[in-house]
Write a protein that binds this DNA or RNA. Structure first.
Lengths: 208, 208
DNA sequence: TAACAAATGTGAAAGAAATAACAATAAAAT
DNA sequence: ATTTTATTGTTATTTCTTTCACATTTGTTA
């Protein structure tokens, strides 16, 4: 099965999130233009993405919501799911831990780490916090493949290399330090100041 | 002066952030391929972005770091700067407030808001927290043009419409609720689950 | 001083992503 | 039963972004 473009993966993730809300509201079918409106994109874009999934609508009713969620899952998720650790239980790490825990059955947050001995044993969203010195051990025993890095700048590189040494395969970096990873590790970096500066730039431009 | 592509704006923000670190280390000049390596992109990409700024290097020495920071600033920042508010002082909002405060002289975090009366008067990074009921008043008096939304899902829409009513021109939305804004307001949405799902997808793909 | 080397700046080409255009389909309206 | 309408799926086109390729520049080396 072909690898989807990164942009499509992002949108599929968004579709699923919105669709899950719609299921709550007992919506059974949705038209491409409705889903598009929610995400501020075009209907063609939605249809094209779904085309890549080989997913079809029911005539004049739209796309069946539950079924679509299922198909997106088949494409995005790993069959047996993946285990995730969050490293750094400051404000950001704590926010992420409580938001992500239990959110996606196939992306299980199974361990938290912090350097502070006092946080050892603490539970956030039912997930246990370990001391960073236990990282290697826990990552292996819990078969963790993805690490979310939310530590202070100063320890970012050290934590990343520990993660890599422990055999992690994907890193989501929220620190402001650029990381280096070997080619078999997937790295995604996100920086909040960049988002804010982008908003600032386009606000400035709009004024003219 | 022409509007830069969104992608270029993002990279310029990144360049500046890295360059600011380099200044600390007393680096005076940098080659395109060095800057590229830090950001995991190509040297051509860097040169092309800088070309859009009309910025030139010094032969055989590379780009002068301080001067480049200045030129990026001239292009990205507003001359008089912009004032920013963060709404929602949970873990995420608190993390953002302490990270962003004082980080960019032209992007001043000047007010925080929360619905919790107990947080009123609280200071994070020297910035005062107000009750949400004061939003309209404070936004106007402090001439705030950008709002960062980090409230719980349930109040996201209400907060956004209050912001818009108060005359805000840009919104950075960290909630998981899609917002609707009029065309004169710039909206940027960021969702952490999407980043994580993207990592998960490409980790899965790498395994094969 | 001639050949070389290290980088740059940029036109042209390639690649990726988004949009337009439209035939196809089947329900609903006349 | 014909026409109209709503919507899709997909091909073609356009636009946006990145990469290639190379002439250019000037310091360095032989």
């Amino acid at each position: 099965m072909d690898t989807l473009p990164g942009k499509t993966v992002e949108r599929l993730s968004q579709y699923r999130r919105r669709l899950l809300n719609l299921v709550e509201e007992n919506v059974e079918y949705i038209f491409s233009h409705e889903l598009a409106a929610i995400l501020h994109i075009t209907a063609v874009q939605v249809r094209r993405d779904l085309m890549l999934l080989g997913f079809s609508s029911v005539y004049r009713k739209g796309y069946p919501v539950k079924k679509l969620i299922e198909v997106i899952g088949q494409r995005l998720d790993s069959e047996s799911g993946q285990n995730v650790a969050i490293i750094g239980m400051g404000n950001l790490g704590t926010a992420l831990a409580s938001y992500l825990t239990g959110l996606r059955p196939k992306l299980r947050i199974v361990a938290l780490f912090d350097i502070d001995e006092n946080k050892k044993g603490l539970k956030i969203g039912g997930v246990k916090c370990y001391h960073v010195s236990e990282m290697g051990k826990v990552i292996k025993s819990k078969k963790i493949s993805i690490g979310v890095v939310t530590v202070p700048q100063t320890s970012a590189k050290k934590v990343a290399s520990q993660l890599i040494k422990s055999g992690i395969k994907g890193i989501l970096n929220f620190t402001h330090i650029p990381l280096e990873v070997p080619s078999d590790v997937y790295l995604e970096e996100y920086d909040m100041i960049t988002s804010l500066e982008k908003v600032a730039y386009f606000v400035k431009k709009k004024k003219k």
